[in-house]
Amino acid sequence: MQKLALRLALAIAALTLTAGTARAATATATLDVTATVVPSCTIAATPVAFGNYDPLVTNSSTALNAQGTVTVTCTTGTAYTIGLGAGNSASGSRAMQHASLTAELPYELYLDAARTTVWDNTVMQTGTAAGITPAPYPVYGRIPAAQNVPTGSYADAVVATVTF
């Protein structure tokens, strides 16, 4: 009898729990996820290294040419321009400075291999990034022939700027 009463009590408790259990309801909401990809660019340069300039023999009638590179990497779809500064010459035109004297060695930087279009901050390279892939732009340098300058090392620093 006690076993029957215990079974009956357990059955009633189970029915009570089942009947008293609330059914779960659901509701939904949309969680928006957003981001903005901003235009961004980086710029790097390899030198225009002319090497030895001999105004008396080798370069008495032939200019000395050299080439460097400006490389731009931008986010996809970013339009940009690349300009080259005038360098550090006090004369207002591009010239390398002697390492220890006040002498200058004139040179120029160009957009094209024929060296007909000067590359500066008014005449610039333009582009639009097609992907996050470095885009190299050659820089063509030239020291005119027969420059009457003292022997020694000459250098200049030209700022390359990407505007986007």
Results as ranks from 00 to 15, higher is better:
Gln2Lys: 11
Gln2Asp: 15
Lys3Glu: 07
Leu4Asn: 11
Leu6Ser: 15
Arg7Ala: 08
Ala9Val: 08
Leu10Ala: 15
Ile12Gly: 09
Ala14Ile: 07
Thr18Gln: 04
Ala19Tyr: 04
Ala19His: 02
Ala19Cys: 07
Ala19Asp: 04
Gly20Tyr: 14
Thr21Cys: 05
Ala22Phe: 05
Ala22Val: 14
Arg23His: 09
Ala25Val: 05
Ala25Pro: 05
Ala25Cys: 03
Ala27Ile: 01
Thr28Val: 10
Ala29Ile: 11
Ala29Cys: 15
Thr30Arg: 11
Leu31Met: 06
Asp32Ala: 05
Asp32Phe: 00
Val33Leu: 10
Val33Arg: 02
Ala35Gln: 08
Ala35Thr: 10
Ala35Lys: 01
Ala35Pro: 14
Thr36Cys: 09
Val37Met: 06
Val37Glu: 09
Val38Cys: 15
Val38Asp: 15
Val38Ile: 15
Pro39Trp: 09
Ser40Glu: 12
Ser40Ile: 13
Thr42Arg: 11
Thr42Glu: 12
Ala44Trp: 01
Ala44Lys: 08
Ala44Asp: 10
Thr46Gln: 06
Pro47Gln: 06
Val48Leu: 06
Val48Phe: 03
Val48Gln: 03
Ala49Glu: 06
Ala49Phe: 05
Phe50Asp: 02
Asn52Phe: 11
Leu56Met: 06
Asn59Tyr: 07
Ser61Ala: 07
Thr62Glu: 14
Thr62Pro: 15
Thr62Tyr: 14
Ala63Trp: 11
Asn65Thr: 14
Asn65Val: 07
Ala66Gln: 12
Ala66Ile: 07
Gln67Cys: 03
Gln67Lys: 00
Gln67Ala: 04
Gly68Val: 02
Thr69Tyr: 04
Thr69Val: 09
Thr69Ser: 09
Thr69Gly: 07
Thr73Leu: 12
Thr73Gln: 14
Cys74Met: 15
Gly77Ile: 04
Thr81Lys: 08
Leu84Ala: 05
Gly85Trp: 04
Gly85Asp: 15
Gly85Val: 14
Ala86Val: 07
Ala86Cys: 08
Ala86Met: 07
Gly87Phe: 00
Ser89Lys: 00
Ser91Tyr: 07
Ser91Gln: 09
Ser93Cys: 09
Arg94Lys: 13
Ala95Arg: 06
Met96Val: 14
Gln97Lys: 07
Gln97Ile: 09
Gln97Gly: 09
His98Gln: 01
His98Pro: 10
Leu101Lys: 00
Thr102Met: 04
Ala103Gln: 01
Leu105Met: 03
Tyr107Gly: 13
Tyr107Met: 12
Asp112Met: 03
Asp112Trp: 05
Asp112Arg: 03
Ala113Ile: 13
Ala114Pro: 06
Ala114Val: 08
Arg115Lys: 05
Thr117Phe: 02
Val118Asn: 14
Val118Pro: 13
Trp119Thr: 12
Asn121Trp: 04
Met124Gln: 13
Thr128Gly: 15
Thr128Ser: 14
Thr128Asn: 15
Ala129Trp: 00
Ala130Lys: 03
Ala130Met: 04
Gly131Ser: 13
Ile132Phe: 03
Ile132Asp: 03
Ile132Glu: 02
Ala135Ser: 12
Pro136Thr: 12
Tyr137Arg: 11
Tyr137Asn: 10
Pro138Arg: 00
Val139Leu: 02
Gly141Trp: 01
Arg142Asn: 06
Pro144Asn: 01
Ala145Glu: 07
Asn148Glu: 06
Val149Met: 07
Thr151Gln: 05
Thr151Ala: 10
Thr151Tyr: 08
Ser153Gly: 05
Tyr154Thr: 09
Ala155Pro: 10
Asp156Leu: 10
Asp156Thr: 06
Ala157Ile: 14
Ala160Asn: 01
Val162Gln: 01
Thr163Asp: 14
Phe164Asp: 10
